[in-house]
């Protein structure tokens, strides 16, 4: 089980590296989405590993609510790009 956890952490390191080295904002958003999912799954795995309900509830709530924030951020960034490229005032 510890070995599985280390492998999950390795998988988490890939999008973090990607977010560090890429300059496009949408690639960073992709990495962020990936990291948000992976961290909440890690929380769930640890909750099962320790047999701890409390951490599991936190993981599920982060999983279901964190994605909503991600969508909000994507829409805000899209509006910003739109206005910046068009140069119009609204």
């Amino acid at each position: 089980m510890n070995l599985i956890l280390i492998a999950l952490l390795l998988a988490l390191l890939i999008p973090i590296y990607e977010a560090w080295q890429d300059d496009d904002i949408w690639q960073k958003m992709l990495a962020f989405a990936s990291i948000a999912t992976k961290t909440s799954i890690l929380t769930l795995v640890i909750s099962v590993l320790r047999d701890d309900w409390m951490i599991g509830v936190v993981g599920v709530i982060i999983l279901s609510v964190g994605n909503a924030g991600l969508m909000l951020l994507a829409h805000l960034l899209r509006r910003m790009n739109y206005i910046g490229n068009e140069g119009t005032y609204d």
Binding site: A31, F32, A36
Partner: peptide, 13 residues
Amino acid sequence: LVIRGILGAVSAL
């Protein structure tokens, strides 16, 4: 700001 979101996810973990 995007990286702040990543930091938030990692620190919640």
